[in-house]
């Protein structure tokens, strides 16, 4: 077995989802290679070389990979794909964009959102928004898959660095061009790796009142999430969305405020350790999955909520 992990990073450091993907890779083989395509990304390579389980780093440090397009990244990966039995990427929008295109060009299946590795060809993945779990077996010569980051721990660091090898690549991509990215800078923890998440839904009523959620999150050192309804209503940007089509999260504590709990939202939070729901509708489906439910008008209990936070030292 030899496993290639396609790294997601921002040219500064690896994403936490990549660290989880490396852990999944080490379950398959002791021989894990990390492909780091980026621009001016030597610091990523250096820190990544000290991730436990990584035996080799292959890097392409070229302008076209500053923000990698699938067309280029797949062409690059194809150069070395035949050396591996498994090719993995995180099940983020990055990995989901790249992995199926690669699989089709290798004429193999892609396996999305793997949550459990049974053996080198058998994997579990959620379907129907997590309402069923499929166990699938692949006979393809190379297994190409995305790994759900919340299902695997982050890989630890090691003392002796792995060697770094350069892979040459000349872009022949005339198909696509990166124009811009609009990101929402925040000091808060990332949703996909946060210990505490506080999420708001349509019950918050408007963008102004949603800011209360953000204020509470800052006191709790929590990440801020939202339901699709809150995003559609324009309370918060799209990258806050948690659910089947947004981000899948697994914090120790998930606090849902004013979220009714559509199955698409529940699909994204089921792996949270403790789910708390505050909603004034006693019949809201969110209460069916909540470990602790409080039927109340959030705005009415807010002063009390903040008092308790103060008492607890937040």
């Amino acid at each position: 077995m030899s496993v290639l992990v396609i790294a997601e990073h921002d040219n500064q450091k690896l994403s936490t989802s990549t660290l989880s993907t490396i852990t999944a890779a080490t379950i398959l083989a002791s021989d894990v290679t990390l492909l780091i395509a980026g621009y001016d990304c030597s610091s990523v390579c250096e820190s990544a070389s000290r991730i436990a389980g990584v035996k080799k780093i292959i890097t392409s440090d070229i302008g076209c990979f500053k923000v990698p397009l699938a067309e280029d990244l797949v062409a690059l990966t194809q150069l070395i794909a035949n050396d591996y039995t498994h090719i993995l990427a995180p099940a983020s929008t990055f990995g989901k964009n790249v992995i199926p295109r690669l699989a089709a060009l290798l004429d193999v299946a892609a396996i999305t959102d793997v949550i459990l590795i049974e053996n080198d060809n058998t994997f579990k993945r959620p379907i129907y928004a997590g309402n069923a779990i499929a166990t699938v077996q692949s006979q393809d010569r190379v297994k190409v898959m995305t790994i759900r980051p919340t299902a695997f721990e982050s890989a630890p660091t090691q003392d002796s660095p792995a060697p770094i090898q350069t892979l040459g690549y000349t872009s022949q991509n005339t198909l696509s061009e990166f124009i811009a990215i609009e990101t929402h800078q925040s000091e808060r923890p990332e949703l996909t790796s946060a210990k505490i998440i506080i999420s708001g839904g349509r019950g918050l009523q408007n963008a102004e009142q949603f800011k209360i959620i953000e204020r509470l999150a800052d006191r709790l050192h929590a990440a801020v999430g939202a339901s699709r309804a809150a995003v559609d209503a324009g309370f918060v940007p799209n990258d806050y969305q948690v659910g089947q089509t947004g981000k899948v999260v697994a914090p120790d504590l998930y606090i849902a405020i004013g979220i009714s709990g559509a199955i698409q939202h529940l699909a994204g939070i089921k792996d949270s350790k403790i789910i708390v729901a505050i909603n004034k509708d006693p019949d809201a489906p969110i209460f069916e999955v909540a470990d602790y439910g409080l039927v109340a008008d959030f705005f009415a209990i807010l002063p009390e909520f903040e008092n308790v936070l103060t008492q607890l030292g937040y």
Binding site: F94, E177, I181, E182
Partner: peptide, 8 residues
């Protein structure tokens, strides 16, 4: 995308 909105 996970980080926000990307234009291509």
């Amino acid at each position: 995308v996970d980080g926000g909105l990307e234009k291509v």
